Amino acid sequence: MAQARNGRPTVQRFADHDIITPVNKLEKAVAKVALPDDDPLARAEAALAQLSGEFGDWMFSECDRLDAARCAIRQHGFNKRTIDELFHAAHDVKGDAATFGFPLAAGAAESLCRVLEHSPDSGRIPVALVDQHVDAVRAIVREYARPDIADIATALNRRLRQVSEEFLRHVNRHRPGYLDGVFSPPLAPG
């Protein structure tokens, strides 16, 4: 049903119910497409394609940021600031990896995020475990042109996940059931 032009909701009455159609205030914010063959999705993909030449540089910058966060932990230890920097750097790699064309790097970054997020005492996280994750991300990105990178990255990600789960089980042994949802498989295919 069309909305009333007076800016008020319309009411359609029936014997046993009423249908109230609220005013669509967003209607004014939507731009009408001028050309029938104009495809906003195609425009967005074209813009993304223009930027895609820079994706490798951006991913290397994300890896440098992750490495700097690791170095801050080595220098200053685990504290709120250094953990936040490391977590955000790993989380950004995890999120940007597929967009930037390096989807195989996301697994190691995700595993590091899980370790940081689910460790009850960050001071007990072995720096060697952090090093393994950061080095894996950097190696996967650096060696992405190799024909066997999928096999290498899959093996690295699988082993990191196993080691991380063992560590998390150990440090969370006093919290029965806490990790049940953490170790469940993802809902979306990976």
Rank of each mutant, 00 (worst) to 15 (best):
A44Q: 06
A34F: 09
A15F: 08
P22H: 02
T99W: 02
C71F: 14
H88D: 12
I20V: 15
T82F: 02
A29I: 07
V33G: 07
P40F: 02
K28R: 14
F60G: 00
F55N: 14
A29H: 14
W58K: 14
R43H: 11
A29Y: 15
F14M: 04
V93N: 04
P40H: 04
K25P: 01
H76W: 07
R65N: 12
A34L: 12
I19K: 08
Q75A: 14
F78D: 02
A31H: 12
S61I: 03
D57G: 15
V33I: 15
F60C: 00
A47R: 10
D92K: 12
L35M: 09
D84I: 00
H88F: 12
E85F: 07
D64V: 07
V33W: 05
Q50F: 02
L26C: 03
I73S: 02
S52V: 03
A42Q: 12
V33D: 09
K25Q: 10
L35N: 14
H76L: 09
K32I: 13
D57S: 12
G56C: 00
D38N: 08
A97E: 05
C63G: 09
A29N: 13
Q75H: 10
K80C: 00
L66E: 01
R81Y: 04
H76F: 12
I20A: 03
K32M: 10
A97P: 00
P36E: 08
A47Y: 01
R70Q: 12
A90I: 01
F78A: 07
D16A: 11
L48C: 02
Q50C: 00
D84R: 10
D84L: 11
E85G: 04
V23R: 08
L35E: 15
E62I: 02
Q75V: 10
D38L: 10
D38H: 11
I19H: 00
I73N: 03
R65A: 12
R74V: 15
E54G: 08
